[in-house]
């Protein structure tokens, strides 16, 4: 595998004495060319700290970061040519239109004027941004600004493209277009490091998932391998009636009991019996609605970072 990003033993601390936060406590991470690697984790898990070290805004306390064979810690200037970044917060581009901003960034990154113009037009088309491409940035919605920021990172992509929460504020239709473009970046040969909370959607696009919690990597595998451990269970979701929860059959372990909704783990061999029970409960008006789904990556993720929440 042709690795574009290779992180080994990365440590980064903030603060001093009793207030020291170990934001990265020995992180190992690889992103290969042509791969989309999802980086999952809670707020404060150390994702942004990791990314900021890769792009040369922070200096690691210990560990190495190799970008396409270049030592990114020793040579941040060279590293910057090899990475393009979509930041977590939208970069304000007041005074520019989405099209001008994308084209200028492409040329600043070293793209030839004609090639950049063609690529910009392609991205605007592919993300369905045409309507706003010539509108001053202060008049576009948050979702359009987010897509523009993505296009700024994708117009002259580095060997590694870092995307921090690219789908935030983006409407469902354009979100699909965006996922397609993220995949296309990898298919064209870039390595993509995708920082996200959106486990459900990322599942369909990523080749590998890295779960970061409290500065350490808890899991690093393909989505299929990660869900494998829970392949023997299904998830039952029940919308409750206002009168309250139904009498649960004994085989069910109710794991979550929120406002008007309950979630339960169902062993696969009990599935038929549970569906029969749910059908009767629905007919009797004891529940509003039910759905039986395979264990999702979200379940796996929650089980990893909050083992106490799962039986």
């Amino acid at each position: 595998m042709d690795e574009v990003l290779q992180v080994r033993g990365l440590h980064k601390k903030f603060g001093r004495g009793s207030r020291t936060v170990h934001a990265n406590a020995g992180v190992d991470l690889d992103v290969g060319a042509g791969q989309v690697v999802g980086l999952l984790g809670h707020n404060g898990a150390g994702k942004s700290t990791l990314v900021n070290q890769v792009v040369g805004l922070l200096r690691p306390d210990a560990g190495t970061i190799m970008l396409a064979g270049t030592d990114a810690v020793a040579h941040p200037d060279d590293a910057r040519r090899l990475v393009s970044v979509q930041a977590q917060a939208n970069v304000p581009i007041t005074g520019l239109t989405p099209r001008t901003a994308i084209e200028l960034v492409g040329r600043i990154r070293g793209g030839q004027t004609d090639a950049v113009r063609t690529r910009t037009a392609h991205l605007i088309e592919a993300l369905d941004l045409g309507e706003w491409a010539g509108t001053p940035a202060e008049k576009v919605s948050g979702g359009v600004a987010r897509l523009t920021a993505f296009a700024m990172a994708a117009v002259a992509p580095g060997r590694l493209v870092v995307l921090d929460e690219p789908t935030n504020d983006v409407d469902p239709v354009r979100r699909r277009l965006l996922w397609r473009q993220i995949r296309a970046l990898a298919d064209d040969g870039a390595g993509v490091l995708l920082v996200t909370h959106n486990v459900r959607e990322a599942e369909r696009v990523v080749d590998r998932l890295v779960v970061l919690d409290r500065g350490v990597v808890l899991a690093d595998d393909t989505p299929a391998a990660l869900t494998q451990s829970r392949s023997g269970t299904l998830t039952l979701e029940v919308d409750l009636v206002p009168a309250g929860p139904p009498p649960w059959p004994v085989a069910l372990v109710v794991t979550d009991h929120g406002q008007g909704r309950a979630t339960a783990e169902v062993p696969v061999d009990e599935a038929a019996a549970v569906v029969a029970w749910a059908g009767e409960a629905l007919a009797a008006g004891q529940i509003e609605r039910y759905a039986l789904t395979p264990a999702s990556l979200e379940d796996v993720y929650i089980a990893l970072v909050e083992p106490e929440a799962v039986p």
Partner: peptide, 14 residues
């Protein structure tokens, strides 16, 4: 304050 300086600093510009 608005975050654009940090992003600009990720560009390959001396």
């Amino acid at each position: 304050a608005e975050g654009s300086l940090d992003w600009m600093r990720t560009l390959p510009v001396p």
